[in-house]
Amino acid sequence: MNEELILTELDYKAVRSSGPGGQHANKTATKVELSFDVSNSEALSDQQKERIHKKLSGRINKEGILKMSSEDSRSQHTNKDIVTGNFLFEIKEALKKPKPRKKTKPTKASKIRRLKAKKKKSEIKANRKDPLK
Rank of each mutant, 00 (worst) to 15 (best):
M1S: 14
A43R: 08
F87A: 02
P106M: 04
K49M: 13
K13R: 11
S18K: 15
D130I: 09
E3T: 13
K92T: 15
L115K: 14
L10G: 03
T107H: 04
E9T: 10
A25L: 12
K120L: 12
L10V: 10
K108M: 11
V83C: 01
K55P: 01
R16F: 04
L88E: 01
R16K: 14
F87R: 01
N2P: 12
V15I: 12
E50H: 05
T8E: 08
T107D: 03
Y12C: 07
K62M: 06
A14S: 13
K102H: 05
S45R: 09
R114S: 10
K120C: 04
N127H: 14
V15F: 05
L5H: 06
R113P: 00
K97E: 15
T104W: 03
L132N: 14
Q48K: 12
K27A: 09
S17N: 06
E50Y: 06
A94Q: 00
L44S: 02
L44Y: 00
S35E: 08
I124R: 14
K54N: 07
K62W: 01
L56W: 02
P20L: 05
N86S: 09
R114D: 13
A117L: 15
K118Q: 11
D81Y: 00
H77K: 11
I124A: 13
M68Q: 03
K133D: 06
K27T: 13
Y12K: 10
D130W: 04
K105L: 12
Q47A: 15
L56R: 04
A126G: 14
S69A: 12
G21N: 05
D46W: 07
L132G: 04
I52F: 08
E50K: 12
M68D: 02
T30K: 08
G21I: 03
N40Y: 02
K102Y: 02
P98F: 07
G64V: 07
H53G: 07
N26T: 14
I124S: 12
E33V: 13
I52W: 03
R113F: 01
K118C: 04
N127Y: 12
V83E: 01
V15D: 01
K31P: 03
H77Q: 08
N61T: 03
S17Y: 06
Q76H: 09
I60Q: 02
E90L: 13
K108V: 13
I91L: 14
K129R: 14
K80E: 04
K118A: 13
S41N: 10
V38P: 00
K118T: 11
R114Q: 11
T78N: 07
S122T: 15
I91R: 01
H24C: 08
G85N: 13
E63Y: 09
K67W: 02
K96W: 02
P106I: 08
E42N: 15
D46S: 10
T30N: 10
